[in-house]
Design a binder for these strands. Sequence first.
DNA 1: GCGACAG
DNA 2: ATCTTGTCGC
Length: 223
Amino acid sequence: MELGALRAKQLELASSVIREDRFDTDPPRLIAGADVGFEQGGEVTRAAIVLLKYPELTLMEYQIARIPTTMPYIPGFLSFREYPALLRAWEQLSHKPDLIFVDGHGISHPRRLGVASHFGLLVDTPTIGVAKKRLCGKFDDLPDAPGEAVPLLDKGEQLAWVWRSKKRCNPLFISTGHRVGLDTSLSWVQRCMKGYRLPEPTRWADAVASGRPAFMRLAEIPR
DNA sequence: GCGACAG
DNA sequence: ATCTTGTCGC
């Protein structure tokens, strides 16, 4: 499919994204972290989804799915490259989460459909976008103190919070994915911090997705 | 036309 | 994203 068609699809899907809180369970009891990585020089797409209990933030389950890569990386079209593997990992979960932290942007996207929003729509579950870099929009200088936040603005609307999660670390871009308000998104991320730059769900998903041995040993599920 | 550009 | 060890700074 050419980009023109994908762009049209994004605009269509973006109109269905819900930017307000619509949790099935409030507060969420199970929070997931989702991340995607690549192997074999990019020929294989590897998705990881971890399930953490809230508020304990302890790992309950994780699933990894590997499928042939179908699309190259094109800024603005990341979700089409990543969602197939994410859906596969999603199907493998023995329990579904009440909220998902997705690595990447939600509505802070040129057409308001980053991977967090796209995936949230596909599985009809609340999602929050947790990105490490800006894709679009502008923001003022962020004070050095941890906890500081400034809005990410584009065409007159706030698309995300640029939030300093930790001292001397680059800020995170927190946005609505689907069925979670912007401010609520930031507050849930803040409630899932444990002293690192990334919130626990995305931190575990990152670790599992990149198969880091130090983490895999600790990833034994207690039962 | 020029620069920017999630993972 | 991924290729990759040590190293400088807080």
